[in-house]
């Protein structure tokens, strides 16, 4: 058994084929579905109230990747999104800004102009989001375009077809290549979030295997979903990915973040996620650098619950901007 001080294993040799990768991933402990569901149900009974709730809501706001990923997105909508990201509640300036906005590559320059040098990050989906069905050259071009436009974070999708067909090598190599494309000549590379699209993976075992594959290939974050496929970020999938990053750090010393995305709409959903983080990986991950929510409508619910706690009355949704 490797001991604590073992450094990260050398990147897998390009000569190693699928068999080597499969042996590596199949060596991971299995996931028992009923057991995962029982644990999730148990954690969902945690009661987060009063001061704990106030702290958790602010933390959740700071973890939001405020997202718009529609074909009908406009520069105006993205500018509104950026304004909201910086100042989520104009009526209450104590509300912290969110972690990042998340937009399509062609709208990255708009976001970059709107956000300037603020601490709010600019995430962009790339690599032919959401299906990922394009040649590698196109995916890399997509990525470089977003990075050149000012993206500080790249949310890529894995090739689920290749993964399910057992071509782990292809998935791995693509992640490595996209990671290289995240480099920026004039500054730090864009952070790479790797979307597993767990709704298309066959089993929880595959969620765990895909998590490790992405982490070995260099992912800075592993992300559940595009938001375009149901089910998206179920609590069970997020729990399995949290266990994966915990075990990966124990094995390699490298910490990787987790981003559930899609389907997290209410404060209660967000708090349950934070409870899972707290009790699975601990406080090291309770930080926007290591845990994010990919969401759009979640933010308004967090703001309404926050207002309820601070003012005692629950404001209606009409008091908050819809976009």
């Amino acid at each position: 058994m490797p001991d604590t001080a073992t450094p990260a294993p050398a990147p897998l040799s390009p000569a190693g084929g699928n068999a080597a990768l499969r042996a590596l991933l199949d060596g991971l402990p299995g996931v028992d579905e009923a057991g995962v569901h029982a644990r999730v149900a148990d954690l969902a009974t945690r009661s987060v109230k009063t001061t704990a709730k106030a702290h958790a809501i602010d933390l959740a706001i700071r973890m939001v990747d405020l997202t718009t990923l529609e074909g009908a997105d406009t520069p105006g909508k993205v500018r509104a999104l950026c304004a909201k990201a910086l100042l989520p509640d104009p009526a209450d300036r104590t509300v912290p800004p969110v972690a990042a906005v998340c937009v399509y590559p062609d709208l990255v320059p708009v976001a970059a102009r709107a956000l300037g040098s603020t601490p709010v990050g600019i995430a962009s989906v790339a690599t032919s989001f959401p299906a990922g069905r394009a040649p590698l050259e196109a995916k890399l071009l997509d990525t470089r375009y977003a990075v050149a436009g000012g993206a500080t974070e790249i949310d890529m999708v894995i090739d689920r077809g290749a993964f399910l067909a057992g071509d782990h090598r292809k998935v791995y190599d693509e992640i490595v290549a996209v990671k290289e494309a995240c480099a920026r000549p004039d500054g730090p590379p864009a952070h790479l979030k790797v979307i597993l699209e767990t709704g298309e993976l066959a089993s929880y075992d595959d969620v765990r295997r895909a998590s490790w594959l992405a982490m070995y290939a260099g992912a800075d974050f592993i992300k559940t979903s595009t938001g375009k496929v149901a089910p998206a970020a179920t609590p069970a999938v997020t729990l399995i990915m949290l266990q994966a990053v915990r075990d990966f750090r124990a094995a390699t010393g490298r910490q990787v973040g987790v981003k559930p995305a899609g389907g997290i709409r209410t404060t209660k959903d967000a708090l349950r996620n934070l409870v899972m983080v707290n009790e699975t990986v601990g406080p090291d991950w309770l930080d926007p650098r290591w845990f994010r929510f990919g969401a759009s409508s979640l933010l308004n619910d967090l703001l309404m619950q926050r207002a309820k706690l601070t003012t005692g009355t629950y404001p209606g949704p009409d008091y908050y901007s819809a976009d």
Binding site: T51, A52, L59, R254, N278, G282, D284, L286, D287
Partner: peptide, 24 residues
């Protein structure tokens, strides 16, 4: 402690701390 091992690994310190549940 985690702080002691942080030097060996690239483990960052947490800025937020644990989620403390209020009495319920």
């Amino acid at each position: 402690t985690p702080a002691a091992t942080a030097t060996a690994t690239a483990r960052p310190a947490s800025a937020s701390g644990a989620l403390v549940y209020a009495p319920a």
